[in-house]
């Protein structure tokens, strides 16, 4: 059982996609998670629900709406075309946009749990020491949730690598551009190439298992948040 060039190409593309998605999420998720953790706003519930939607929605729903919105006749598609970026579906960039939405809860939720433990109080303490809220966020909050940051990154990476439905809808199965490992696997099965499919599937299983082992072996990485949830 071994991996051929097409498999390596797909695995490398998957890794690139997961890395790009994780990088974007590590920028977006901390402020969003912090807002969710401390806001008294009545919008907290709906926003948290929106972030969590990809956990329960079929990926095809997300893929379908992204295809409509980002396609040549969609509102966002018109915008990207006006900006000279072309349209995003069926491109690598389009997959990154979709994956960021799809993996958002996996980045936000561990961070939010950890940040809720840090709490508003640390900002208030920092304020008495004349530290502004922004500086306090960077120097007080983030260092305390660094393990949750790592967990958020690993989970986002692993979840994106396991993506299938969204990619199938807006990816278009283009080698080297949008044919990620899960889509190639589907192709191999349809061509009855079970031997090659096995090798690729096994590679994905081992990778996902390694990621999750990392996360669950460092339970504190989720922040005390998970422990608190488990006590309930």
């Amino acid at each position: 059982m071994s991996l051929g060039p097409a498999e390596w190409q797909a695995l490398l593309l998957t890794a690139r996609l997961a890395a790009a998605t994780t990088a974007v999420l590590l920028l977006l998720a901390p402020p969003l998670a912090w807002w969710l953790a401390v806001t008294p706003s009545r919008w907290r519930g709906p926003v948290a629900a929106l972030v969590a939607l990809p956990l329960v929605l079929p990926p095809t729903v997300l893929g379908f709406y992204l295809l409509l919105a980002l396609g040549p006749s969609g509102p966002l598609g018109a915008l990207t075309q006006a900006l000279g970026l072309g349209t995003l579906p069926f491109t690598f960039t389009g997959l990154v946009v979709a994956s960021v939405l799809y993996s958002l809860p996996f980045a936000v939720q561990p961070l939010e749990a950890a940040m809720a433990q840090v709490g508003r109080r640390s900002l208030e303490v920092a304020a008495t020491l004349r530290t502004g809220p922004l500086a306090a966020f960077f120097w007080v909050v983030l260092p305390q949730v660094r393990r949750a940051l790592v967990a958020a990154g690993v989970l986002s990476f692993a979840h994106t690598a396991g993506e299938f439905g969204v990619v199938l809808m807006i990816g278009g199965n283009i080698p080297g551009e949008t044919r990620v490992a899960s889509v190639l696997l589907y192709d191999l099965v349809e061509a009855l190439e079970y031997e090659r499919a096995h090798a690729l599937a096994l590679a994905l299983v081992l990778f996902s298992f390694a990621c999750l082992t990392y996360v669950y072996s460092r339970r504190e990485a989720w922040g005390i948040g998970v422990a608190a949830l488990e006590r309930r």
Binding site: L67, G71, P72, G77, P89, F90, T91, G172, I174
Partner: peptide, 9 residues
Amino acid sequence: AQILHGAPF
């Protein structure tokens, strides 16, 4: 459907 939505084929 993908071609109608701008797939680069």
